[in-house]
Design a protein around this nucleic acid. Structure first.
Lengths: 234, 234
DNA sequence: TCGCAAATTTGATTGATGTCAAAACGCGCT
DNA sequence: AGCGCGTTTTGACATCAATCAAATTTGCGA
């Protein structure tokens, strides 16, 4: 609490990269003038160690967040202790902003998967900003819309595609659009990608190896694709 | 097009039940005065036959919808023609409102599962309403938030629970809260419930029969639960 | 550069769910 | 009350992915 309070106004600690991410976040990039100023005034920044908890399911929700660097994992636990990832938040993503108008408890756990910098915004403060400033409301609606779409996409992917297909989709989503060869680098550990796709790490590994025959080569975090077009047929 | 235009202002055709549903929809029930009047002015109503298409994936998005009676199914197709339900919309639910600020194409198919009455709202019109009327913006944010939460819930359920557990959760969600015996009636066909839970109809059927030993009896659309408390332990 | 701890892969197995076909059932209609 | 069609259930099977355990590999820090 004390530490958080201290950090509230110390936006000085933001690296220029973090600042760039913040301003390009879908949630802020449409704002200007006083809307932006007011929004930033309610903001605080915090740095989290790897595996640190942002919040736990059931805690009172006081803020929503925007990832500046690193990746934050949202997940739920079953009674027997198994974890299921609901979303992996990349730099620029916001999370828990869906609590602005509904619940007062966080409905899932949030954990930093590595050293992370995140901005937090007081829910009450932003709610009243939104009441008075249509620009802020617009930004929030746009952000919520984007999330809802991507979450529905996630449901559809889980229900429609097998593990190799989901992995292929992920690779394609990070490939330049042309149809030739491509090479990408995973921005995080494979176990995180596995959770993101709703798979056990072993299943991800097997999915990669089943994609070898389609021209996908994996070495560490590097993924080489012989023919992007061919991958689309999976 | 012509038919739709004709219906636009003929809200007379609304039954009193439909009207009640409309006004209690989470999306409208916080509105009053001119906000409500303006909103309703952009609204049109249509009646759909069973299995009728509301819109198809890829079509230009011009409206979002609110279900007044019946159930609307949102789904995607895989390349080989399999269908996966993304959401089942009950009376009072809105759908495709996530396109207000993002896409211009519908990202899934929408189909009436039975005779349905639905209200439609022009996306552009509501967007400009929201720009000027914080109450409208608030209603939209609340609606988007609710959807986002329930969709995340859906992802978590799919990833965390087996078929019998999901069915038990569904039953519990429609049971009065006390711990004793309960009896509920499904509001739709079992095949629809199956899709809603991400299951094949056969899997739903087997899930029901595996719940027999926990005191769940199914006859047609009637479901009897001996002990609601016991069902929670599944 | 070496060595260790963590991450990933591989193998063997189990469990859960989809698929296809056929039988049984429920529901509305006459 | 009986008929008939569409829905649901059941059975047999195939497939996919989770799990557990063990072998490798990777990446990092000394």
């Amino acid at each position: 609490m004390e530490a958080t309070a201290i950090m509230m106004n110390s936006n000085i600690q933001l690296t220029s990269r973090d600042k760039a991410v913040l301003m390009k976040a879908p949630f802020l990039n449409s704002l200007g003038g006083s809307s932006l100023v007011n929004m930033l005034a309610t903001m605080g920044v915090q740095t989290l160690a790897a595996r640190a908890t942002v919040f736990r399911e059931g805690e009172n929700a006081e803020a929503f967040y925007c990832v500046l660097s690193g990746y934050v994992r949202l997940y739920r636990l079953s009674r027997d202790g198994r974890e299921a990832d609901i979303r992996i938040c990349a730099p620029g993503d916001t999370f828990a902003e869906c609590l602005l108008y509904t619940d007062q408890k966080y409905p899932f756990h949030a954990q930093a998967t590595e050293t992370c910098t995140i901005a937090h915004f007081d829910l009450e403060a932003v709610k009243s900003l939104a009441e008075h400033d249509p620009e802020v409301a617009r930004a929030i609606m746009a952000s919520l819309s984007r999330h809802l779409l991507s979450t529905m996409e996630c449901v559809a992917n889980d229900r429609l595609f097998t593990a190799p297909q989901r992995v292929a989709n992920y690779i394609l989503s990070r490939c330049p659009v042309d149809g030739g060869p491509a090479s990408i680098r995973l921005p995080f550990q494979k176990s995180l990608l596995a959770g993101m796709l709703g798979l056990a790490p072993e299943a991800l590994s097997r999915a990669f190896s089943s994609l070898r025959k389609t021209g996908v080569t994996v070495r560490g975090r590097m993924i080489q694709v012989v023919d992007v077009q061919a991958l689309r047929q999976i």
